[in-house]
Design a protein around this nucleic acid. Sequence first.
DNA 1: ACGGCTCTGGAATGAACGTTCTACCGGTAC
DNA 2: GTACCGGTAGAACGTTCATTCCAGAGCCGT
Lengths: 209, 209
Amino acid sequence: MESSAERDGDTDRDDGVGTRERIIRAASRLMQRQGYDGTGIKQIAQEAGAALASVYHFFPGGKKELAVAAIQRGEEEFADELRVAFDQEEDPAEAIVLCTRRLAEGLRASDWVDGCPVTSTALGSASRADDIQRAAASAFAHWRDLVLDRLLRAGVDADAAHDLAHTVISTLEGAELAAQVSRDATPLHAAGRHLAQLIRLAQGTPARS
Amino acid sequence: MESSAERDGDTDRDDGVGTRERIIRAASRLMQRQGYDGTGIKQIAQEAGAALASVYHFFPGGKKELAVAAIQRGEEEFADELRVAFDQEEDPAEAIVLCTRRLAEGLRASDWVDGCPVTSTALGSASRADDIQRAAASAFAHWRDLVLDRLLRAGVDADAAHDLAHTVISTLEGAELAAQVSRDATPLHAAGRHLAQLIRLAQGTPARS
DNA sequence: ACGGCTCTGGAATGAACGTTCTACCGGTAC
DNA sequence: GTACCGGTAGAACGTTCATTCCAGAGCCGT
């Protein structure tokens, strides 16, 4: 499945990263910007600095298998961002606010083209390939579990925490989408404030008025 | 290559619905399911029961112009749903809950393929065509204004209402996305509950100073 | 009957798509 | 050395794509 160590003897030839890794990165980034159908395999190979045959060597399942790998990569990236935010802010409400701020920064830095890598890859292709739909669903579930875990540790009631974890992910996702489409970070900032409000409410702490 | 020429509901013969209208409907429905790049113009023409040349006759701008029309159609559809919900429920919080329920029903009825028509059409193509991005942004802004208007009439403080309108749209959008990808209505139901909570909170908080 | 209009049928174009194939290179193992 | 194997280069496959063009259908007021 996934081999974390990608070095044989001396490396640091090209980018210090193996070909397979470069292909995944290129696929993830391109599909994030152009969607599944809008991204060609030849384009991925070129962007990765790899040969076309190499793509099919590492991903014999073709474009679909590549999309699954790209989605899993995107899942890990955002999961890391969530973990970092929860690590930097001990208050879960503040952590979510920090998260929205980071998303807004990333979006603006890319001139509003780098949205959620999972969403754009999965939308439109999920109805044709079950593997892709399953990978995207797994990403959402994984992120939700990270939030759920933090909410439970913050003393939120179990039933409320399950619901709230859903809404945190939905709102983050939707706000990033709205911000990307509108080319304006306001949806993300509003989402951060309101999610913090909901989390504080669920914790039993009186919210800011 | 014969695949279900006409079926499902009504394929809109000459029942007073002109060719141009049928093309818009087909484009909107197909791009909603398959995205911009995943939908071919020939497929749209076939689904609409129209000639390929007719598509270019009514939409000389080609696929891009067609996508803009499809997005505008999707905008109107959801705006109507919002208005109906606000009309049926006098409490804005309950109206949003009703809205999430309707979205969940529609999603399940289509076997989780008919998500937000604007999102799937705009994602991935907006970075290449400014017209499409602008149409999608306008859709989000229009929906937001509908919510904002209702919140203001419900006595919500102006500043709070602006923010809350953003979050209502973001969360509805994100929850529909999460529900579609996960093939599970839970995100929408949770979103309804939490948005109602936020709205009631904003209604009960009088404007300060 | 007429020309003038909107709309359509079907073929054609050139480019891009995903995928497959064969030949080849640089190693390590024998 | 020779044999082998993971990885690469590039051409070729058949298909589909968006778009264009033109000849002709249907209908209109005259």
